[in-house]
Simulated assay, not measured.
Amino acid sequence: MGKTVHLVKLSVGTESPETLAAWQEANLARFPDGLPRHVTRMWPKREAEILNGGSIYWVIKGAIQCRQPILRLDEVFGSDGVRRCAIVLKPQIYLTQAALKRPFQGWRYLKPEDAPADLPEGRASDDVLPEELNRALAEIGVL
């Protein structure tokens, strides 16, 4: 089995993993396979590594908060005729430990050893910490 690499992407305008899921759900009817996707201008050069078990890690409100496994990369053309890459995702969103991330444009590669761990499934129903406390804990490496 080959190497794996993940992607990190800002989820602009998203308030929480729940609002990301709601936005994706609202847009599923646009796609014949009913799978969520993110369309980007650039095609990842490390396609084989991404498709070898990679996920997209979503940065929400300044921190990685969740991830979605990547199923495939589809070629799509915009209304302007420009070739783009549709990153097709599994619908399941996995909550992760918070990991602060500075703003950036586009997407970045993320090594598996640098990816935040998934939260245990039972944690999904835990009370959410206040944003300031969550950020402070992430800054000192507790989360």
Rank of each mutant, 00 (worst) to 15 (best):
residue 6 H to E: 02
residue 10 L to E: 15
residue 130 P to F: 06
residue 134 N to Q: 11
residue 61 K to G: 10
residue 142 V to N: 01
residue 40 T to S: 15
residue 131 E to L: 12
residue 82 V to K: 04
residue 28 L to V: 07
residue 120 P to A: 12
residue 98 A to Q: 13
residue 78 G to Q: 04
residue 131 E to V: 14
residue 64 I to G: 00
residue 40 T to H: 07
residue 83 R to Q: 13
residue 61 K to I: 12
residue 39 V to E: 13
residue 136 A to C: 03
residue 101 K to D: 09
residue 17 P to A: 07
residue 1 M to P: 11
residue 21 A to Y: 03
residue 91 P to S: 15
residue 78 G to K: 03
residue 43 W to S: 11
residue 37 R to A: 08
residue 143 L to M: 13
residue 37 R to E: 06
residue 102 R to E: 14
residue 142 V to E: 11
residue 2 G to V: 11
residue 91 P to R: 15
residue 109 Y to F: 09
residue 72 R to W: 02
residue 5 V to T: 14
residue 49 E to N: 09
residue 79 S to C: 02
residue 142 V to S: 06
residue 25 E to N: 09
residue 113 E to K: 08
residue 127 D to E: 07
residue 13 G to V: 09
residue 73 L to P: 01
residue 127 D to I: 12
residue 120 P to L: 08
residue 17 P to I: 04
residue 112 P to T: 03
residue 19 T to A: 09
residue 41 R to Y: 14
residue 80 D to H: 05
residue 19 T to D: 13
residue 107 W to Y: 15
residue 97 Q to N: 13
residue 54 G to S: 10
residue 14 T to Y: 02
residue 107 W to L: 05
residue 47 E to Y: 02
residue 131 E to P: 06
residue 80 D to V: 05
residue 1 M to G: 15
residue 85 C to F: 07
residue 61 K to F: 03
residue 92 Q to L: 12
residue 119 L to V: 05
residue 138 A to G: 06
residue 10 L to W: 08
residue 127 D to W: 11
residue 36 P to G: 09
residue 60 I to A: 02
residue 107 W to P: 02
residue 25 E to M: 04
residue 47 E to S: 10
residue 86 A to W: 05
residue 65 Q to R: 15
residue 45 K to E: 13
residue 125 S to W: 08
residue 139 E to Y: 03
residue 22 A to T: 07
residue 11 S to N: 07
residue 79 S to L: 10
residue 1 M to V: 14
residue 129 L to T: 05
residue 88 V to Q: 07
residue 38 H to L: 14
residue 101 K to R: 15
residue 51 L to Q: 04
residue 140 I to N: 01
residue 74 D to T: 01
residue 36 P to D: 11
residue 133 L to F: 05
residue 35 L to N: 03
residue 64 I to S: 00
residue 102 R to M: 13
residue 16 S to E: 08
residue 137 L to W: 04
residue 82 V to T: 12
residue 92 Q to H: 14
residue 82 V to L: 08
residue 85 C to G: 05
residue 142 V to D: 05
residue 114 D to N: 12
residue 97 Q to P: 04
residue 129 L to M: 12
residue 114 D to F: 09
residue 32 P to N: 09
residue 11 S to Y: 00
residue 52 N to K: 09
residue 78 G to N: 08
residue 139 E to N: 06
residue 13 G to H: 08
residue 75 E to T: 13
residue 49 E to F: 04
residue 9 K to Y: 04
residue 99 A to S: 15
residue 143 L to W: 08
residue 35 L to P: 03
residue 31 F to N: 06
residue 140 I to T: 08
residue 57 Y to V: 00
residue 126 D to W: 15
residue 143 L to T: 14
residue 15 E to T: 14
residue 118 D to W: 00
residue 138 A to I: 03
residue 113 E to H: 07
residue 68 Q to R: 08
residue 131 E to T: 10
residue 106 G to V: 12
residue 74 D to W: 03
residue 118 D to E: 14
residue 81 G to F: 10
residue 63 A to P: 06
residue 55 S to Y: 07
residue 33 D to W: 07
residue 97 Q to I: 02
residue 136 A to P: 00
residue 114 D to P: 02
residue 86 A to Q: 09
residue 50 I to G: 01
residue 49 E to W: 05
residue 62 G to N: 12
residue 98 A to W: 14
residue 13 G to F: 04
residue 22 A to Y: 04
